[in-house]
Amino acid sequence: MSTIKITVTRYNPETSSEPFTQSYTIPYKEDMVVLDALNYIKNHVDGTLTHRWSCRMGVCGSCGMMVNGDAKLTCATFLRDYYPGEVQVDPLAHFPVIRDLVIDMSDFMDKLLEIKPWIIRSEEKPLEEGEYLQSPDELNLYKQFSMCINCMICYSACPVYGHDQSFLGPAAIALAHRYNMDSRDEGQDQRAEIIGSHEGIWECTFVGECTRVCPEHVDPAAAIQRSKVQLTKEYFLSWMWPWGN
């Protein structure tokens, strides 16, 4: 039977203050993903291994980890891409670790709430007036940005966020852009205060890693650049045209 060696970074603040690595050699099958390997270890070898997962099909966004140094959804990363080499699994970079492969996502959750990722109306129209209609062209303006599954892989790939956690970061800005571009939404003013602040879009140096690593093919780098162009135009217009609309 073929086997593969999986090395996992472990950390348990109750028993030791330092993280350490542990290696497991487990049976290998061609159709196994990295998450299968972690589940195999947890179920058959070492029940103390702690990791997050739920859907096992690239939808829930909870299984993001570093695989051989790259941020990946472990349920969508096949062992065969590394076999016969070894696989090293670490918790998502740039986040505090709670235990083993489980990171503390509260910073991202706070940022997500800040940008108000829902449709904001200055006035709701009454139910009897029917639904808010939207054309396919209007839908296409934001559709790709709505594919985000909040897996935080872009945050662990972003060197700017790695340097400075006050940066709002790729996914939150992409989602702000998603709602700003939605023809039914009227919340741009409220979001502009957050994304236009110093910690918002301006810290991005257009490295573009967020777009490269996104498992859902969202393009956060484009969302950030488009927001910069739009808010810069607006900023200069407000100087030249202070009495404008």
Binding site: D189, E193, G196, S197, L231, E234, P242, G244
Partner: peptide, 9 residues
Amino acid sequence: MAVRVKTTD
């Protein structure tokens, strides 16, 4: 137009 961006960025 209301100034929505309050930094010099």
